[in-house]
Simulated scan of single mutants.
Amino acid sequence: MDFAFMMAEQRIKDAIQKGDLDDLPGKGKPLELEDLSTVPQELRMGYKILKNAGYVPEEVQLKKEMMSIHDLIDLCQDPEEKERLKKKWTEKSLRFNALMEKRKISNSSAFGAYRNKIHKKF
């Protein structure tokens, strides 16, 4: 073991003994492990960091909104309301496509391959 590892372990043990870690969220509960098998390995760390920070990228939020609007369109009986929802979906779709184009994410990149898998699921 290297010195840094031993120091870290000692500090963790000291914090446990002093009770500094007693108020952590989820203490005493089983860990909720996520299935990240659909996320390319090189993107998993970034995905976890952003998720733990509570950050949802705009394109992810737009995709969620587009799915919700699509479901509403399918269930809608009123023709006027249906047209309004279709217009809203189109606006979200254009914004999503503009974001993707702005970032110039190519299909050869890891995210491009992952994006294609996401699109196939929708």
Rank of each mutant, 00 (worst) to 15 (best):
Met66Gly: 02
Asp22Gln: 13
Leu33Glu: 12
Tyr47Ser: 01
Met45Ile: 14
Lys51Trp: 15
Thr38Leu: 13
His70Met: 14
Gly54Thr: 01
Leu43Thr: 03
Gln41Met: 05
Asp14Gln: 11
Leu99Met: 07
Leu31Asn: 03
Met66Gln: 04
Pro79Gln: 05
Arg95Lys: 12
Leu94Phe: 03
Lys92Val: 03
Glu59Trp: 04
Asp78Met: 10
Gly19Tyr: 10
Lys87Thr: 14
Gln10Ser: 08
Asp74Met: 06
Arg103Phe: 14
Lys29Gly: 01
Lys82Pro: 02
Arg11Val: 09
Met66His: 01
Ala53Asp: 02
Trp89His: 10
Gln17Asn: 08
Glu83Pro: 00
Lys64Met: 10
Arg11Leu: 14
Thr38Ser: 13
Asn107Cys: 06
Leu72Ser: 05
Leu99Ser: 01
Cys76Ile: 06
Arg84His: 13
Lys88His: 03
Asp22Ala: 15
Arg95Glu: 05
Lys48Val: 15
Leu31Gln: 14
Leu21Trp: 01
Ser68Arg: 13
Pro30Cys: 03
Ile105Asn: 04
Ile12Met: 10
Lys88Gln: 07
Glu83Phe: 09
Lys48Ile: 15
Gln41Cys: 01
Ala98Phe: 05
Asp71Ala: 12
His70Asp: 15
Ala53Gly: 01
Met66Tyr: 00
Pro40Met: 07
Glu42Leu: 11
Ile69Ala: 01
Leu31Trp: 15
Gln77Thr: 13
Lys64Val: 08
Glu65Gln: 10
Leu99Tyr: 03
Val39Pro: 00
Met45Asp: 01
Pro25Tyr: 15
Ala98Tyr: 03
Glu9Thr: 05
Asp74Trp: 03
Asn97Arg: 04
Met100Asn: 02
Gly19Trp: 08
Tyr55Ile: 12
Asn107His: 01
Gly26Ser: 08
Lys86Arg: 14
Met100Asp: 04
Leu43Ile: 05
Gly46Ile: 03
Ser106Asn: 05
Leu24Asn: 06
Arg103Lys: 04
Met66Ile: 11
Asp22Ile: 06
Glu9Val: 10
Ile12Val: 11
Ser93Glu: 11
Leu75Pro: 10
Trp89Ile: 09
Leu99Thr: 03
Val60Glu: 06
Lys104Leu: 08
Met100Lys: 02
Ile16His: 04
Lys63Pro: 01
Gly26Cys: 07
Met67Pro: 00
Gly28Gln: 08
Glu81Asp: 01
Asp14Pro: 00
Thr90Leu: 15
Lys51Pro: 00
Ile49Asn: 02
Arg95Trp: 00
Asn97Lys: 08
Lys13Ile: 14
Gln10His: 09
Ile16Ser: 02
Ile69Thr: 06
Asp23Glu: 12
Gln17Phe: 10
Lys86Val: 11
Lys27Thr: 11
Lys48Met: 14
Lys102Met: 06
Glu34Asn: 09
Glu80Tyr: 15
Ser93Cys: 12
Thr38Glu: 12
Pro30Gly: 00
Lys27Met: 15
Tyr47His: 05
Ile49Ser: 01
Asn52Met: 11
Gly46Ala: 04
Lys82Gln: 07
Lys51Val: 02
Lys27His: 09
Glu101Ile: 11
Gln10Leu: 13
Ile49Phe: 05
Gln17His: 11
Leu85Glu: 02
His70Phe: 02
Ile16Asn: 05
Met100Arg: 01
Leu72Lys: 15
Asp14Cys: 08
Met7Tyr: 04
Glu65Pro: 00
